[in-house]
């Protein structure tokens, strides 16, 4: 059940696990691990601080250490190795193009040369550091944020006092992505049944344009019905369930404390 038949492998697979997560079919999974038992708000906060520290590191040793910590976190959150590798590859496809040009465009001590173009040691070092930072952040997001149901992320943002309207927008969007993804697939099947195939021509772009236009028309009418239904239930700008948060437990405190220690340690090693 991918969002579109034409997607490339990585996106297709991602679309899949996204759709499953959105549908909330994870509720049957009761093998909650330590990472999942930590308060979502704390996880979001820790993830943000960790990424901030990692981005400001400037030594290879500290970055390698951070990569190790992120990998451990992915393992602790019991995310599959396949997902981790796929995400790292999806990232690096674009980055490799940018990074491959760095050694040649950074002035400095020549390290090697390709077709007469000298590549500098400084450029290669810069490229390696960027690659490490980007991957550490992707892994940490996978470990701490992707391991929670996306709806919980809305709750986490609410806990961290993000504007209520933003949290609501997040939760509603999440819900509709799932609904509209299904509707999109249904319309695409109808087009396929009539012999439509994706090509590189005006006909394709126009046809998919009409498809999305139709999706917009239908969904805006749907949203009018939703507003009416919500008004009927006395919606006053908040969901009661959103503001009920469990009190923090010793696990939350321990996790936050350990994370602060790790971040401080990394900063001591790696920020000159």
């Amino acid at each position: 059940m991918s969002l579109a038949g034409e997607q490339t492998g990585a996106v297709n697979e991602c679309g899949c696990d996204g759709a499953v997560a959105l549908a909330g079919s994870r509720s049957g999974d009761d093998r909650r691990n330590f990472v999942q038992s930590v308060d979502p708000g704390i996880r979001l906060l820790v993830c943000a601080v960790f990424c901030l520290v990692v981005v400001s590191l400037n030594s290879l040793a500290a970055l390698s250490l951070a990569l190790g910590i992120a990998a451990l976190a992915v393992a602790a959150a019991r995310q599959s190795l396949g997902t981790a590798l796929r995400r790292m590859a999806a990232l690096d496809g674009f980055m490799l193009m940018v990074l491959a040009m760095l050694p040649f465009s950074t002035p400095g001590e020549p390290l090697f040369s390709v077709a007469g173009l000298p590549a500098s040691r400084e450029g290669a070092l810069l490229g390696t550091m960027i690659l490490l930072k980007a991957n550490v952040v992707v892994l940490m997001i996978l470990a701490l944020l992707s391991s929670m149901e996306p709806a919980l992320l809305g709750r986490a943002m609410n806990r961290l006092r993000l504007p209520n309207k933003f949290v609501l927008l997040f939760l509603f969007t999440l819900r509709y992505i799932d609904v509209l993804g299904r509707e999109y697939r249904r319309l695409r099947v109808a087009m396929k049944a009539r012999g439509f195939r994706m090509r590189c021509d005006l006909h394709t772009w126009r046809s998919v344009g009409y498809l999305v236009g139709m999706l917009l028309v239908r969904s805006i009418e749907r949203s009018e019905r939703i507003v009416a239904a919500m008004r009927c239930r006395g919606f006053n700008g908040t969901f009661p369930a959103l503001t009920e948060n469990a009190p923090l437990s010793w696990r939350d405190g321990a996790f936050a404390g350990a994370s602060v220690g790790v971040c401080l340690g990394l900063a001591l090693v790696g920020i000159q």
């Binding site: 034409e6 996106v11 819900r175 992505i177 509209l180 999109y184 999305v212």
Partner: peptide, 12 residues
Amino acid sequence: AVFFVASLVHFP
């Protein structure tokens, strides 16, 4: 959400 879904469509 429509734009999110539509931006996942890949054109050859």
